[in-house]
Design a protein around this nucleic acid. Structure first.
Lengths: 217, 217
DNA sequence: ACCAAGACGATAGTAACTACCAGTGCGGTA
DNA sequence: TACCGCACTGGTAGTTACTATCGTCTTGGT
């Protein structure tokens, strides 16, 4: 409730121009209560249900494949879970709320910075999920590099999704961005099994897609 | 001068436990003067001479190669320029200062967040440096994904370098991290020309360079 | 009806900034 | 030498995010 008012006010007046007191008044509570539920002003936008989701998806992914492909699949799967349920081309209320928060995150420096740092924490979670035993520093370094790269690509896809007002399918954008960074052969093509594809949605890249310009890269 | 005192105090007492007033007193100036030279407390650690450096290195890189390799080369080159000049195994004073700032950046959440956001700005600079003309959104998306991934890998390498107390060669670490994320064949092998290689340094990965087979990563 | 526990609120305080105005040293010009 | 503009510095007061502490109130279980 508090959060909804906060996101609305931030969107209307801007993040910096809105004080926590404003949010409290709009929500009909005292500033103290706001701070009790959301330790920082940034948390009014940035609550992160994404964290465990990705870690679980990692665990559910077969280990015998390249690191980047494994992490990429987990990211796509979690994004599918996050944005599932839309009516035709319209997002659900949840989806619209997510989009509004995402736009704030991208356009407001303070929020963007903290969000990127949250990704950094998520990176650590991914790395420990991948190597539940090994303590070889070289292996860890490997996993850190792969995970950080994948998360950066995820952020690029999220940005694009927000710019596109959520019209495109987020999992598709992530797959596309992964392919752009790591090569077309890195994206898992077997994921089509899940949710049926709305007609007219962007092409299902990966593998052989004759229309793909294959661009310079 | 102010900055040197700041980094020392932050390292000794911790970033959060040191106030700007403390820094001002240590430097023998008023808090006002500190704010005049460094708009925010974070800027006492995070001044970024890296920005233009990377953009210049991008411009100096041949365009006819995969994006990731091109950006990776630029990052390696700029790192070489940044850490050049060491006496035997010891860093110069500049190098030690850089390392101290890096350690603060990595261990302090607020600094880490802002640094990652600076990378985000750097990413935009790289993208515009790459496509000085094209406005095709797909191409831009491509470049965004590649640049963000490369910068994330750079951060991983920087972290490792700091953990290693700057003993390893930073350009080598970056090359290694790039290879870990994108595959051994992505790292440019022709960069050996510059500074002579200390004996016993890690192997110069990336097997040969068979004529640069134009993309497919 | 009573009691313990958690939720809420008010007050006061710290620290990072910002806006505004005043003093100080310094080179160039008459 | 006297004067003027200019850059640098400093002081004061205010805003805002956030914390600590304490008192109040509501709620659920017996």
């Amino acid at each position: 409730m508090i959060q909804a008012h906060a996101v609305r006010l931030f969107t209307e007046r801007g993040y910096d121009a809105t004080t926590v007191t404003d949010v409290a008044e709009a929500a009909g509570v005292s500033p103290m209560t706001v701070y009790r539920h959301f330790p920082t002003k940034e948390d009014l936008v940035l609550i992160d249900q994404h964290g465990q989701l990705v870690a679980e998806c990692i665990a559910a992914t077969p280990a015998a494949q390249p690191l980047v492909r494994r992490i990429g699949s987990a990211l796509i799967d979690s994004a599918t879970a996050l944005t599932s349920g839309r009516h035709g081309n319209d997002l659900t209320a949840d989806g619209r709320f997510l989009l509004a928060r995402l736009r704030l995150m991208i356009s407001t420096p303070a929020l963007r910075a903290k969000h990127l740092d949250n990704h950094y924490a998520l990176q650590q979670a991914i790395v420990t999920a991948i190597e539940d035993d090994a303590t070889d520093p070289e292996t860890t370094f490997h996993a850190q590099a792969a995970a950080s790269a994948c998360l950066a690509v995820l952020h690029t896809a999220l940005t694009r999704w927000a710019e596109d007002d959520g019209r495109a399918e987020l999992p598709d954008l992530i797959a596309k961005a992964l392919a752009a960074a790591f090569g077309d052969d890195i994206v898992d093509t077997r994921r089509d099994s899940g949710r049926p594809q709305p007609a007219g949605s962007p092409t299902r890249l990966a593998g052989a897609d004759p229309g793909d310009p294959r661009c310079v890269r």
